[in-house]
Amino acid sequence: MSRLVRLYPGAWRNRYEDEFLSLLDERPPTARDIVDIVRGAIDAHLSSLAAEEPAPWTHRIPGALALTGGAVWSAAILYIATRSEHAWEAMGLLPIALLFMFLSLPGDYMFAHGRRIAVVLALEGASVVGVNAPVWAVVLVSAAAGYLIALGGMLTLAAIRAGVGARGRWLALVAAVLVPVAISLPAAVGVMGIREGEFWYVAILLPYGLSWILVGLRMAVRGAPTIVDPPVNPIEPGVLSA
């Protein structure tokens, strides 16, 4: 049932999903109903598109920043993976990509989620302290945690802002951050050696850049208010009008 409801736009689901699923529980849909639901979903998309006022151009800035960050990150990783000489010079592009990604987060969002962001920053601070600990295992765990919190946290916050659902956010987190960290750990502890000319470990960083490109595209299409825009409720019932 929930698969059928996912065909509807996010704003519609925020308002009607619970009661709609309750209705489908009470009266399981027939084949004819399924066609009717699909038709209703198409109609909801079309009617919300017709009702939405075009977003001001400033709403495209966060998406463009996220997209640029993802593109710079991916290009740097691809360059490193495909060139043998002087390739590591491209590593200098990664902090620039991170800066673009970080700048896509501010705006009304940072004010609305200030507490959540403060917790993330505190954890990141703890990991920085841990990296300098005298015990090697603490250093390793802190480094992995710092990577997860900083990169995973930023990607998750951007995905929330882009309106990606919980399942999509977890998928991005696992594919772009958790799996690369899990693969990298054996190399980091010396179980697997990294020899010069082997760039497999570089390629595992690529999903992070690609995830930001997808999140940036979605954010740009949906529009996200910046710090100069008045607060906007993204699930304003008005978008549901015909």
């Binding site: 009607y16 619970d18 009661e19 309750s22 009717d36 639901i37 038709r39 209703g40 019932p237 549901l240």
Partner: peptide, 28 residues
């Protein structure tokens, strides 16, 4: 059909012809 029902409910609510009450469990 459920799609038609909720398409119509959304429009009627938007036009102020009907209003939603507090939900009872998941039913509204």
């Amino acid at each position: 059909g459920p799609g038609t029902l909720y398409g119509a409910l959304a429009r009627l609510e938007r036009r102020g012809l009907i209003e939603a009450l507090e939900p009872e469990d998941r039913r509204r």
